[in-house]
């Protein structure tokens, strides 16, 4: 077994060569814990993220829209599983991660603490929330930790359907009756700012950013990602014929980017600390669903045990 200094040198050399770190490689404890925290939070977000949209499955306006929404929500469950699978390669168990979420010790993205009040919200989530998630996840496909990067490749492929179906919902509404268009605009008004907050605090105040960048877990800063997102959605909003609720949004020819207005970080902090409109409801639902599923998990284990006993006695 090589000395720690030699192992650390090998780890740094692997990063410097832009190669991937794999599960059985030596890694600094901070790298491991940072990844567990980030991947778990990402997985929890996918799982909790099923709730706001799941709310509309039974009330989707057509069978086609319902089938699409079911497929999308099923994808979110799948993404959660890819990510839990990646987190587990770091030596943490699924049961532990579930406990940490249920105890409130690990978080999920604050965006899911906002309610889905109308059908147009399903469109806004697909376009803006999944759009922001894709912007965030594309650079993560080159993250230094192999299993996380590979999970992100799968997730990104599937998310683009989510973004397009959301955009199509809003496009249909914004080209429908005046009431439908107003509904689309109202959803956009409520989801625009929270989706900008999804990239996290400004670079100057982001606590873990510098270290994550050095470890090549994070490839672009919060502000850079937010800028990419804003530049992407402005022309998309124009095509919808809807107005982004940001009077200060202007093209800055000098920078070659759009400038956006100030973000209400107090709201962000308030929601993050548990005081958003739906924090309590989301967690209550998650804990209840897990508890109510316990008998299914137990029955499956009992059945597997019974079958293995039968198999032995036949042999």
């Amino acid at each position: 077994m090589p000395e720690t200094a030699e192992l650390a040198e090998r780890f740094e050399a692997t990063l410097a060569a832009d190669q991937r770190i794999e599960p059985r490689d030596w890694m600094p404890e901070g790298y491991r814990t940072t990844l567990i925290r980030q991947i778990a939070q990402h997985a929890h977000s996918e799982v909790i993220g099923m709730q706001p949209e799941g709310n509309w499955i039974s009330r989707a306006p057509s069978l086609k829209r319902k089938a699409i929404l079911v497929a999308k929500v099923q994808d979110e469950a799948g993404h959660g599983l890819y990510l839990y699978s990646a987190a587990e390669t770091l030596g943490v168990s699924r049961a532990e991660l579930t406990d940490l979420l249920h105890d409130g010790q690990q978080k999920y993205s604050s965006i899911f603490n906002y309610p889905t009040l109308t059908w147009a919200d399903v469109g806004a989530i697909g376009w803006l929330v999944d759009g922001a998630a894709i912007t965030n996840q594309i650079p993560l496909c080159r993250c230094s930790y192999g299993p996380y990067a590979r999970a992100m490749v799968r997730v990104c492929k599937e998310e683009s359907f989510h973004q397009r179906q959301g955009y199509e919902i809003l496009y249909t509404l914004s080209h429908g009756s005046s009431r439908q268009k107003a509904m689309a605009q109202d959803a956009l008004d409520r989801w625009y700012w929270p989706s900008l907050m999804m990239f996290g605090p400004p670079d100057a105040e982001s606590t873990h950013s510098a270290r994550s960048m050095a470890w090549r877990i994070k490839r672009l800063s919060n502000d850079e990602l937010r800028q990419r997102f804003v530049d992407m959605i402005v022309p998309q909003a124009e095509a919808l014929g809807l107005t982004l609720p940001d009077p200060q949004l202007t093209w800055n020819a000098e920078r070659g980017h759009y400038d956006h207005g100030p973000i209400d970080w107090e709201e962000f902090t308030r929601v993050l600390r548990g005081h958003g409109p739906c924090n309590a409801a989301r967690m209550e639902h998650k804990r209840r669903a897990h508890a109510e599923g316990a008998w299914v998990r137990d029955a499956a284990v009992a059945y597997a045990a019974k079958r293995s006993v039968e198999a032995v006695s036949v042999a």
Partner: peptide
């Protein structure tokens, strides 16, 4: 992890 036994 400490919870491993509880997982399938």
């Amino acid at each position: 992890g400490p919870g491993e036994r509880r997982d399938w």
